[in-house]
Design a protein around this nucleic acid. Structure first.
Lengths: 185, 185
DNA sequence: TAAGGTAGAGAACGAGCGTTCTCCACGGCA
DNA sequence: TGCCGTGGAGAACGCTCGTTCTCTACCTTA
C-alpha cells in the first residue's frame, strides 16, 4: 500500500532524527508516534518493536550518509581532491546545530553492549567507510597505510566536531590528510 | 570515617567498571549496590543519586587515564618517542577483552543530550587530552597542526579499536603519527 | 542489663517505559 | 439501510528503574 509506505517513511524519518538527537533510550515510542503522526497500532504493525526500528534506522542512515558523501566526492576533479572532499562534507554537516557526531559510534556506545545486532550494523558501516576511503586513496596511487590514517582522522574528527560544536576538527583532519597525500606523492 | 571512604571507593570502582562495560542506563542502582557490596541506604548516603555518581565516575576516570598514560610517556626517552608512547598505552589497553573505547565519548553519546553536566565533563577531558598531546608535540619543536592531527588520530583509533576489537587501529594511528613527526622534522 | 542509635536487608512507591488491548467512529458494500 | 471490517485514540498492563521507607538486629554506653 502506498499509505503504508508513506507512514513507514515518516516513522523512519522521525526515528532517525529523534534517536540521533537524543539517543535511542531517551525517546519513547509514544513521542515517536506523535512526531511521525501515526497511531501506536500502526507503528507496531509496521515495525517489530523498538529494537528492530533502531536497526532499520541505522541501516537507512548508512545509505543516506554514503549517498550524501558521494555527492561531495564526485564533485571533485582529481583523485586527491576526491579524498579530501569527505572532510568538506563533514565540515558542512557539522555546521548544523543539531550535529551530534557519528550516529553509529553513538549507537555502539549506548546499545552495543546489549545488542549484538546493533554492533553488527555499526561494524558494517565502519568497514564500509574504511573501504570507501581505501578505494579513493588507492585511486591516487598512495599506499594503504595512508588510507588507514585518513580513515582514523575522519573518525576522530567526527566525534570531536560534535563535542566541541565546531567544524575546526574537520578542517584540521583535512589539513593533515592533505599533508599525508603530498608527502607520499 | 575510614569505613565510609572505603565504601565510597568500592562504589566508584564498581560503577566505573559497570558503566563502562554496559553503559550507564543499562546498570541499575541495585546491581551496582550488589557489586559494590553496600546497602542501598549507604549508597544514597554517599552519593546524591545516579546522575551525581556518573559525573564523579567520569572525573575519577579522567585522572586515572591521565596517570596511566603518563606512565607510558615518561618511560620514553626522546620527545618524539614520548608522543608516540600514547599509542602504546592504547594498544596495551585495547588488549583487554573489556575494552570499550573512550568512556567520555561513550558517555557523551548516551547522556550528552540530556545532561549538560556530563557534556561539561566530557569537554573538559577532551581539551585536557588535546592539551597534553599539544604539550608533548611542542616539546619536539613541531608546529601545532601536527598536534591537532595526532590528537584526532588518537581519538579515531580509540573508537575503532573498540568497534573492531583489535589493537590494529592504535598501531595504524601510531604509524601515521610517526610519519607526521618525521616529515615535519 | 537496659536503652538508644546505627546500619543493613529488602519491601514499597511512584514514575516511565514498551507493548497490547479496548472501544468507537467511519466508510464500503450488499 | 444495515453490517462488517479497518484503523485511530488512548487506556491498560506488566515490567523496570531510581529512590525512599520500614523493620529488625546489633553494637555501644551508662
Amino acid at each position: 500500500m502506498t499509505t503504508d509506505t508513506k507512514a513507514r517513511e515518516r516513522v523512519l524519518e522521525a526515528a532517525d532524527r529523534l534517536f540521533y538527537a537524543k539517543s535511542a533510550h531517551a525517546v519513547g515510542m509514544d513521542e515517536l508516534r506523535a512526531e511521525a503522526g501515526v497511531s501506536l497500532k500502526k507503528l507496531y504493525s509496521l515495525f517489530d518493536g523498538k529494537d528492530a526500528l533502531v536497526e532499520e534506522v541505522l541501516r537507512r542512515r548508512e545509505e543516506a550518509i554514503t549517498a550524501a558523501t558521494m555527492k561531495y566526492v564526485l564533485r571533485a576533479s582529481t583523485p586527491e581532491e576526491q579524498v579530501l572532499a569527505v572532510f568538506d562534507w563533514m565540515a558542512d554537516s557539522s555546521g548544523t546545530t543539531d550535529f551530534r557526531g557519528c550516529a553509529f559510534i553513538n549507537s555502539y556506545a549506548e546499545l552495543g553492549p546489549s545488542s549484538e545486532r546493533v554492533t553488527a550494523v555499526v561494524r558494517h558501516q565502519k568497514s564500509g567507510v574504511r573501504g570507501a576511503i581505501a578505494a579513493l586513496v588507492a585511486a591516487t596511487g598512495r599506499p594503504e597505510w595512508v588510507a588507514d590514517a585518513i580513515f582514523l582522522l575522519f573518525e576522530g574528527a567526527m566525534t570531536n566536531t560534535a563535542i566541541t560544536v565546531s567544524s575546526e576538527p574537520a578542517r584540521q583532519a583535512q589539513t593533515a590528510a592533505r599533508f599525508l597525500l603530498e608527502k607520499t606523492a
